[in-house]
Every structure is written in C-alpha cells, then in structure tokens.
Amino acid sequence: MTTAASELATYNFAYLDEQTKRMIRRAILKAIAIPGYQVPFASREMPMPYGWGTGGVQVTAAILGPEDVLKVIDQGADDTTNAVSIRAFFQKVADVAVTTKTREATIIQTRHRIPEERLTTGQTLVYQVPIPEPLRFLEPRETETRKMHALEEYGLMHVKLYEDIARNGHIATTYAYPVKVEGRYVMDPSPTPKFDNPKMHMSEALQLFGAGREKRIYAVPPFTEVVSLDFEDHPFEVQSFDKPCALCGAENVYLDEVVLDDRGGRMFVCSDTDHCEDRRDHGHCGTMLAYNKGAAQ
C-alpha cells in the first residue's frame, strides 16, 4: 500500500463503507437508465448536517476514484464555506486531487450553479439537491406525487406557471425552474437559476443529482433532451443583465449583486469565480477592476 493509503487508515476510501457505495451505485445506474426519475436510496448520515450537500457528497463518494480531479462550487464560487469544506473533506478521506479550474476537473460537485464553461465528455456534474420533488409544494403527499409521475399527470405544474402569469404577467419562477426530461419526467433541476436550464439540454457531461435528506438520486445522461416548461404565448426566457461583469466585463453570464456601501452602491460580478478569474488572466477588464489594470496592460 502507498503511504497515502496508510494515512487513511481510520476511514474507508471516500468515507463511505463498501456496502453503502454499492447501494448508491446501483441507484445511480437505475437513475441513468430512467432519466429524470427519482430513485429512492438509503441515504446515510454524513459528518455534516442535512442541507449542507449530504446527497451530493454521497454521490461523489460513490463514484470518486484515485484518478479523479475534483472541483466543488457553491453558487458558482470555489471559495465559499460549503465548497471549501466539501473539498477539504474529500482531500482528507480520499486524498483526491482538487482543482478550481472547470476544464481540469473530472467530477464537479455543485450547489445551485452550472459552470459557465461548456462541460465536455468525461466530466460528471454532481448537484446537491434540497427538495428533489418538483411537485412537492403543489402536492405534499409523496403517495400522490409518485402517482402523478407514474401517470405523467403534470397539469398541476402548468397551472402553477399559469398562476404566475395571471398574477405577475409573466412566469415569475426564477430558480428551480421545472424541466421535462426526454419528454417524460418533470424534474427539479435543483435551485439553480433558470439561466442555467439551457445548459442541461444535450449536455456532453453526465449530470447526477443527490438529495440526502429526501433520500433520492436522479440523473440526466449526456445528450438528453431537457426542456423548460412554458406556454406558446409565454415562452421560456432566461434572465438578462443590463451591464457586463464589473470585474471581467463578461456578458451573457450569470451575475451576482454585491452591495458595496449603505448609500446604494452596488456592483454586479460573475457568479462563476473560475470563469471570471480566467477571463481576467486573459486580459479582460470590467469597469470596477482597478488594481489589475496596470498589470493587464
């Protein structure tokens, strides 16, 4: 055994025991075979509270190998609490290589964003999902929602979107925007902004979803049709932003609003920190990027 392996004596590789991994792996295979369908699984207690990505962590632990390069993002950022602690967790229990660069990663675990850079074959995106059932807020009973999925009875979801239009004049759902996968199952894409929905459609990467507290795993294989629900006269639209990123000048990316002072000062910056840094490294400048201007010239 290598020295790295002997230092990991306390836990099995990637924390989970082998029987748990087999159980999760079987669930993942069935999830891939039935795109968009939520496979129940025996979610374990993890050394972090429910709601902190235990579903995603279990999926990642079940697929992770010593050859993998792991990236973890939280709302697009590599340097926020959830991302840092999950990355450190896998460094500790699996001694796995980590990166913040999207294109170098083989597995990307994400909380609520899809990276701006197009994912490619050989990459797997693992979503942390709080509430996997898209119909849950419309019908609280699991027995009923399961029947609705079985009968492909999704009228209620369209009623909900219609009520959005009746009240607000447009579909006001901006995140966790429901999608239909391969013309069959309506699926919750996890609370990603609807801006990211088009990236799921015909993606080259495999997308796996883990919900730890709710004990469900689901998947979207590569090259699978993912269509956001809409109406002919109210077609699906993604958010657009008035200004480009204040740091890197990127347009057509998802921006976060950052409040600067108590006098209404604010800036809009890329939510995907790696994408933003990469652009700045390549000389792109936004209007509020002061410190780097000299270096870029």
Partner: peptide, 16 residues
Amino acid sequence: VFAAQSVFRTVMDCMA
C-alpha cells in the same frame, strides 16, 4: 475498494 470503483465507473460511463 479500488477495483470495484474502477469497474463501476466503466459501467456508469457505458450506461450513460
């Protein structure tokens, strides 16, 4: 541990 992981990843990639 590592053999099962590598076999699973092959099956997962082929299933996907």
